[in-house]
């Protein structure tokens, strides 16, 4: 749990970096990520080769922002198996071969499963890069600028804050449990009910205290987000350039063209 708390804090530290990507306007980064995810999702279920080329953008971003790729996969280790599980049954339903690797036939189900997995991974990487290069406050400010309802943005911000609160409470309770249940792995199933109930009550109490603290310092359903870097020429160029690149990668079969250079 302490590790989880530290990891939450590390995301804030990553977002406080100073690379060229960090210094871009959050609105530009947000819109670029949305365009990227939309393009990735638009690929057909058998267009695996086209999708592989879409890796180019996150790889470039990892390099420029100075964020190690392994950090991304480490932090997403809990979500990744879920994403990878999507489409796991496709090979059983779609058995017709659609390509051959040498003499080995590969069924449509396998290709569509890999496509779905890759789509999930690419979307997660893009989202991670956005969060790791933009503070949550800046992200919320960008959302407000794009006229996303204030209530939704405040909910997002407070959810982010309260995840930390709940994790802290969970850490305290888990430590207290293990100190009185030595040698036991995890929480015994008989304690799950009361454990979760207590966690909820304690988190609510703490959330209430935090909310009171906000009210006592003049909060009235409106957050004053940190001033965003204005949307400048470089941000426009980044958004336009990246969007053009995504569309080009979507419309031009780059992988096939590249392959045809080597295979006749």
């Amino acid at each position: 749990m302490q590790k989880a708390l530290r990891e939450l804090g590390e995301m804030d530290s990553l977002a406080a970096g100073s690379s060229p990507i960090h210094s871009l306007c959050p609105t530009a980064k947000l819109l670029t990520t949305v365009v990227y995810i939309a393009v990735v999702l638009s690929f057909g279920k058998y267009q695996l080769s086209g999708l592989i080329v879409m890796l180019l953008w996150p790889v470039l971003l990892f390099q420029i922002s100075g964020i190690p790729v392994h950090v991304c996969f480490y932090k997403l280790r809990i979500v990744l198996p879920l994403v990878l599980a999507v489409g796991i049954f496709n090979p059983f339903f779609d058995r017709a071969p659609i390509l051959y690797l040498g003499t080995v036939p590969v069924s449509g189900g396998v290709v569509s499963m890999l496509t779905l997995m890759l789509k999930g991974v690419l979307c997660l990487m893009a989202s991670f890069l956005l969060i790791a290069t933009t503070s949550i406050d800046s992200l919320c400010a960008a959302l407000r600028k794009l006229h996303v309802p204030g209530l939704l943005v405040t909910l997002l911000l407070l959810t982010y804050r309260y995840v930390g609160v709940m994790t802290e409470e969970l850490a305290i309770m888990t430590d207290a449990y293990h100190l009185r249940a030595p040698g036991q792995k995890g929480i015994h199933v008989s304690a799950w009910g009361s454990f979760l109930g207590q966690l909820l009550l304690r988190s609510m109490d703490r959330a209430q205290e935090l909310y009171s603290s906000m009210l006592l310092r003049g909060y009235h359903d409106h957050f004053h987000y940190a001033p965003m870097k204005p949307f400048g020429l470089s941000d426009g160029a980044y958004l336009a350039g990246c969007s053009a690149l995504f569309l080009a990668l979507r419309l031009v079969p780059a992988a096939r063209l590249l392959g045809s250079l080597f295979v006749r």
């Binding site: 406050d137 935090l210 603290s213 906000m214 310092r217 003049g218 004053h224």
Partner: peptide, 15 residues
């Protein structure tokens, strides 16, 4: 329970 913003500065700016 009192400080809910990421940094001391942001917390102080809140009110």
């Amino acid at each position: 329970h009192q400080m809910f913003m990421p940094t001391v500065y942001e917390d102080m700016m809140f009110a």
